[in-house]
């Protein structure tokens, strides 16, 4: 697995292998009643990560470890770099021409920031969901089947199965199962956001990056998304950027506080919200600025 990013065998083979592998894993999980992962297993990590947009130094020397099957919240005032940091984890910053990144991003001990890394394979393992739901102008079914299709799943039966499983995992199946072939754009905002999550889950990522996934949603939809994240953390590692302090406190295991592109403090969520060691953190979480 370690080498799959740098020297992947021909992709379709690799993809099919990963699918059967995940399926086998799932079955094992079902039998074992989802054991929590061993404490301290690092899912992804950055070492001295710097991101520049042109002359702007957006992320300054951030070293962070994210643990498996945990929800980690990234908090901080607008413009503090938390979204930029999140985007660098699956190299979405590559799509911005002026962005430049230094430092290491370690996934399974492989530096995925290296230029020779297969970013498409990386993004398959590190999924992402944005603030505004961005479903494709296709049917609900095609939105979810989109990525599995080009990752090599061809059989209708397999696709049907993936679509159902992903929609179920995103707690959307019961609401849409009778209209899978209708446009995804007819769904409500909250449903669209869960569809986008289902779409990301369809490629069976290990890590899910969420950039304020609930900030454009109403309270009921927000509650559904949060409930969903709790469910998902059993199988995925979740990193979430949020503006909402209560949300961070409610759902996350650990919290990282960013300010002006720097990581100020990183600890258990409880510690951050009750006994932060830095004054800036305390000021922020108690609402004195930002």
């Amino acid at each position: 697995m370690t080498d799959s990013l740098t020297s992947a065998p021909p992709r379709p083979v690799w993809v099919v292998d990963r699918w059967s592998e995940t399926r086998a894993l799932e079955e094992a999980e079902d039998r074992a009643v989802s054991q929590p992962a061993a404490e301290g297993a690092v899912a992804i990590e950055t070492r001295s990560l710097n991101v520049y947009y042109g002359d702007v130094h957006a992320i300054k020397d951030v070293s962070l470890k994210f643990y498996r099957h945990e929800i980690t919240a990234l908090i901080g005032p607008s413009g503090c770099g938390k979204s930029t940091y999140l985007r660098s984890l699956n190299r979405m910053n590559d799509t911005i021409p002026t962005a430049r990144t230094t430092g290491q991003i370690l996934l399974d001990g492989v530096d995925v920031g290296r230029p020779d890394v297969d970013v498409w394979a990386l993004r398959k393992r590190v999924g992402m969901v944005w603030q505004r739901p961005n479903p494709f102008n296709k049917s609900i079914y095609e939105n979810v089947a989109f990525a599995p299709r080009f990752h090599g799943v061809r059989k209708k039966k397999d696709l049907d199965e993936i679509v159902e499983r992903s929609l179920r995992a995103a707690a959307l199946w019961d609401e849409v199962k009778d209209r899978l072939h209708e446009s995804a754009l007819g769904l409500s905002g909250g449903q669209q956001q869960r569809l986008v999550i289902a779409r990301a889950l369809a490629v069976e990522p290990e890590i899910l990056l969420l950039d304020e996934p609930a900030s454009s949603l109403d309270p009921v939809s927000t509650a559904k998304i949060e409930e969903l994240l709790f469910e998902l953390k059993k199988r995925y590692t979740i990193i979430i950027v949020t503006h909402n302090m209560q949300q961070a406190a409610r759902i996350s295991d650990r919290t990282a506080f960013f300010l002006n592109g720097e990581l100020i403090e990183y600890a258990d969520t409880k510690t951050i919200f009750t006994r932060p060691s830095r004054k800036e953190t305390e000021d922020y979480v108690s609402g004195r600025f930002g």
Binding site: M92, T95, W120, F146, A147, V203
Partner: peptide, 14 residues
């Protein structure tokens, strides 16, 4: 919309 493109790239699309 750029976010549609980003959505596709984030799923591992080339």
């Amino acid at each position: 919309p750029p976010e549609i493109k980003a959505g596709s790239y984030a799923l591992g699309a080339t």
